[in-house]
Design a protein around this nucleic acid. Structure first.
Lengths: 192, 192
DNA sequence: GAACGATAGTACCGATCGTTCTTATCTTGG
DNA sequence: CCAAGATAAGAACGATCGGTACTATCGTTC
């Protein structure tokens, strides 16, 4: 039975549905371990549609990661804009990730995970992971204007963010959110 | 032509040779992406020998990771014992990882990488990764006797260590070693 | 020197992989 | 109302996967 009755034929919605399902399956099972048939089933889409939209598994991975990094950046930008200026904005970023760690099915940062799986390869996953790290560095650097050395402190905060994320995923411990916050406060005290 | 002429028949050496080759292939290509045939070729061993020794690919992975974590622990213990007591011992740990980042073919922590690839699974890789993190926590805690809160500071140092390791691998930047050291000094200043 | 365990080399197995192809059915636009 | 495009369902393809079987040959031991 092709095309569920009563549903509109909307290519953009179909593409978004595939992206969402693929992100879930890749996150839960790992990129290599996830088969295209699993994604077909999870998305309720045909292989034809997936390959028309993304060309290959590699293309699908790149699209999922690109979508993911953009969403994460938007979340952080919104959280920062909503916080009072100053170090409260930096702490808002870590508040956000603390709630992220506590979400069911939390499996760490998709970009770092993908780059780790792709060890050695110089493909899209590593490039997107590096871009993701650069976003964090630039975000923190912007929020650290007035500090003694914004660039250095920004890099330090990224180390803390990614370290806490990795350990939270491996240990399945949402407490790393609070832990990271304490470290950040110490670093900020020393940075001004 | 079985068994290279002139070489001794030494099961332990054969096992060690397989472990070393498998660690290299897993590290360079990733565990899922690496095929048993690649390991056969890299080790110069037959499949029969590998499966007699390790039972399965899963068993080989567990053996490689177990061997790895033991070696890393020994390295750190030796470095700590060789350093003057006090915070110099903690800095010695980060000196060691800084030189590690600069090694050719550095690909991050094998245990964290394996646990990341095995996302969701509750197998040996995750367990060994958690054990590895616990080793670091306990090592730092032991070296932090006299600090205001050794347990909390030890956990902070592990976050920094793993964060710097991950970013150094993703960005292929050995500079994270020096970066981590600065963070550690700041945290130690606040911890005493 | 005969027996035996360890090993290399290689063919092979069923399963699964990513990908392509085919067919039929749906929606949409003219 | 028909042509065109989008989609679902699934068969099928070659490649590769982890794992097994088989043979021949090595070193060691008695």
């Amino acid at each position: 039975m092709p095309v569920k009755a009563g549903e509109r034929l909307d290519p953009e919605a179909t593409r978004a549905r595939i992206l969402k399902a693929a992100a879930e399956v890749f996150g839960r099972r790992g990129i290599h371990a996830a088969g295209m048939n699993e994604i077909v089933e999870a998305a309720g889409a045909s292989k034809l549609t997936i390959y028309k939209n993304f060309g290959s598994k590699e293309g699908l991975v790149e699209a999922v990661l690109t979508d993911r990094t953009q969403r994460v950046r938007a979340w952080h930008n919104e959280a920062v804009d909503a916080a009072p200026a100053g170090r409260e904005q930096i702490l808002a970023v870590f508040e956000l990730i603390a709630t992220w760690y506590a979400e069911a099915g939390f499996r760490g940062c998709a970009m770092m995970n993908a780059a780790t799986e792709d060890r050695g390869q110089d493909g899209a996953p590593r490039r997107l992971a590096q871009d993701h790290l650069r976003f964090y560095r630039q975000l923190f650097e912007r929020l650290l204007i007035g500090a003694r050395n914004p660039e250095v402190t920004a890099r330090q905060l990224v180390v803390v963010l990614e370290g806490a994320t990795l350990i939270s995923a491996v240990d399945q411990d949402p407490g790393l959110g609070a832990e990271a916050r304490v470290i950040v406060e110490t670093l900020l005290d020393a940075a001004f």
